[in-house]
């Protein structure tokens, strides 16, 4: 896996960033903001995942965008600019088409941001962040992550063992397979439950349940992270000021209306663009720096 420079920041930076950009992408339906968010999200996903991200975006996200955008006018007949009437007599309006495009754009942006989130927010970071707030649940989370690969392995072991007494999951009709599958799951359940008793012992033996449990972390909030947090805070503040001034809002129904562009718009657009592009910029700068260092030595 490629190590991304933004992912190397403190988990609070990573998580906070994604919460903010996701919320902003969902709230701001203004076309400029949507465009900025979509382009940035796609850029970062390509930085993170390379060719795979391009394939994902073109093969799944693009068709989805088109289908969703097309679906809206079929149900939504509000708006004043009527383009034509459908067979059932309902009007298709310009506003509803544009709104369909905007809302599907929003959805795609959110999905692409999430694909970046999935890459950056590893379980370690999640457990670090929530280990203090919800210690028991984040421990459960860690335990489930531990058990799942183990159980999958055991399912394989059991199906081989079952096969060797003449019961094969891959042969026979659907009902047959389903029955065998359920039998395997049942065997696995017993195995898992019985073995987990020792896991509980091991937790108790290491003092689980004593009052005042703390949470170990691999991470340190260093100066670089602090600088980053301050930068993020300034950019977010700028965007929010813009939002309160109505720069980021658009009205679709009954007719489309947004605020006229001004110098403030330009500032807010720039701030939002910087905010969204930040991880990609960081990655690029780091890469250039690295190349520079390598070329010197």
């Amino acid at each position: 896996m490629r190590r991304d420079s933004f992912a190397a920041y403190h988990p609070i930076v990573n998580f906070g960033y994604f919460v903010v950009v996701l919320a902003f992408s969902m709230i701001f339906m203004h076309p400029v903001f949507q465009g900025i968010a979509l382009i940035s999200a796609v850029t970062y996903s390509i930085v993170l995942n390379g060719i795979k991200a391009i394939r994902f975006n073109v093969l799944y996200m693009l068709p989805m965008l088109i289908i969703l955008a097309a679906a809206n006018p079929l149900f939504n007949h509000a708006g004043v600019t009527i383009l034509f009437y459908m067979k059932d007599g309902n009007p298709v309006t310009l506003e509803s088409i544009l709104y369909g495009i905007a809302s599907s754009c929003m959805l795609i942006t959110v999905m692409v941001w999430f694909s970046c989130y999935n890459k950056v927010m590893t379980s370690d970071k999640f457990i670090y962040l929530f280990g203090r707030i919800i210690p028991a649940l984040s421990l459960i989370f860690s335990m489930v992550l531990r058990f799942v690969p183990r159980f999958k392995q055991q399912i394989r072991v059991i199906s081989v063992a079952q096969r060797s007494i003449g019961r094969d999951v891959t042969q026979g009709n659907v009902v047959h397979r389903a029955r065998h599958g359920i039998r395997i799951l049942s065997i696995m359940t017993t195995w898992a439950m019985e073995n987990a008793i020792e896991t509980a012992d091991s937790m108790k033996a290491r003092g689980y349940g004593l009052p005042g449990r703390t949470s170990f972390s691999l991470y340190r909030l260093d100066r670089r992270d602090q600088t980053m947090l301050i930068t993020l805070a300034i950019l977010i503040a700028a965007v929010l000021i813009g939002a309160s001034a109505g720069e980021n809002t658009i009205r679709y129904f009954p007719s489309i209306h947004m605020k006229d562009q001004s110098w403030l718009s330009a500032v807010v657009y720039t701030a939002y663009g910087l905010l969204c592009m930040l991880p990609a910029i960081i990655s690029l700068v780091e890469e250039l720096k690295w190349k520079f260092i390598i070329s010197k030595t």
Binding site: I140, V144, R177, M188, T189, M193, G209, P211
Partner: peptide, 27 residues
């Protein structure tokens, strides 16, 4: 402040539900 065994039971059942999908890879 749930006890160790409660956490274990919940974690095991959730993990079975997640891993269970791989037992039905053919369906």
């Amino acid at each position: 402040k749930p006890q160790a065994r409660e956490l274990i039971v919940i974690a095991v059942l959730a993990a079975i539900a997640v891993a269970g999908r791989s037992a039905f890879f053919m369906l």
